[in-house]
Amino acid sequence: MIWLAAGLSSLAVAGCVPRGAAPAWKNFGGDPTRGSAEITRAQCGACHEIPGIQDANGLVGPPLGRFALRTTVAGVLPNTPGELVHWLRAPQQVTPGNAMPDTGLSDQQARDVAAYLYTLR
């Protein structure tokens, strides 16, 4: 059901926004520069390879290069800003028992992190 709703809404968005238009993160209040600092602070790089983040070379979770082009978040959520923010804040709620801890990011911080990830294409 979530899939269907997300799919329909992204179809609607895709219908209106031409290719190469402003990236999605510009519209949901995230700042990629702040996100980059937040990623360092939260030590995302201990488990993920993240282009553009110093020493982010962990291989516990998936590499996050070209994240903007990914279809799913963690293989279970459609890769939309809203779902990504949800995942970033509460991965244990989405997929209980996966290795990624809840990050303790605030809503704004999660938006900033998402904005950074959406610069990776």
Partner: peptide, 16 residues
């Protein structure tokens, strides 16, 4: 999160 540098998770430590 208020530490700089921020202490890393260590699941990967034995590989690094």
């Amino acid at each position: 999160g208020g530490m700089t540098p921020s202490p890393p998770f260590l699941i990967d430590a034995s590989r690094q």
